[in-house]
Simulated scan of single mutants.
Amino acid sequence: MVKVMSDYQLKDREKAILRFVIHQFILTANPVGSRNISKKYNIGLSPATIRNIMADLEELGYLDHPHTSAGRVPTDKGYRVYVDSLMEPPYLDRKTKEVIDANLNAHPSYETDDLLKITTSILSNLTDQLAMVTYPKIEQAKLERIQIVRLSSTRILVVVTIQSGLIRTITLELDAEIEEENIETVQLFLNERLSGLKFSEIRSTIAERIKDIDETKYKPIVRVFLDSVDRIFTDISSDKVVVKGAKNILKQPEFADHEQFQSVIELIENKDIIIHVLDKKRQTQKDDLVISIGKENQDEKLSEYSMITKEYKIGDLEGTVGIMGPKRMNYSKIIAAVVYIANQLTEELTKQR
Rank of each mutant, 00 (worst) to 15 (best):
R231F: 10
N248L: 11
P74S: 05
R150D: 06
E88D: 03
Q147M: 10
Y62N: 04
P326A: 13
A342W: 05
D235W: 08
N330P: 02
I308F: 10
N330S: 15
V83Y: 04
V264A: 05
E304W: 05
D12Q: 07
Q129C: 14
I341K: 06
N297K: 00
I213R: 00
Q140I: 05
E311R: 14
L60Q: 14
G294N: 04
A55V: 07
V83L: 02
E347P: 01
D175T: 07
I265M: 06
I146R: 03
K137Y: 12
V229F: 07
S303G: 00
Q283C: 00
Q163E: 15
K39S: 11
Q24N: 13
K240W: 12
L267D: 03
I265Y: 12
A256G: 10
L157D: 10
R35C: 06
E296H: 06
T49Y: 01
Q9R: 11
Q187G: 12
S153R: 11
I26T: 10
E348N: 14
Y135N: 02
R328G: 06
I146G: 07
L172A: 07
S6I: 07
T284F: 06
L289I: 12
E14R: 01
R80C: 03
K313I: 04
E181P: 00
I323E: 00
I183V: 13
G325E: 11
S85F: 10
L45N: 05
I341V: 15
K219A: 05
E348L: 12
L104Q: 12
H67V: 14
S332L: 11
L57K: 09
D84V: 01
E266S: 13
I275C: 05
S237N: 13
L115F: 08
L174T: 12
S46F: 11
R203Q: 14
N248W: 03
Y305V: 02
R193Q: 11
K77N: 12
F255T: 11
H107I: 14
S303H: 01
S69P: 04
S152R: 09
G294I: 01
Y79T: 02
K211A: 15
I213M: 10
E139W: 08
P89G: 02
D56T: 14
S263R: 07
K280C: 04
V4P: 01
S306W: 02
K137E: 13
D7M: 12
G33N: 15
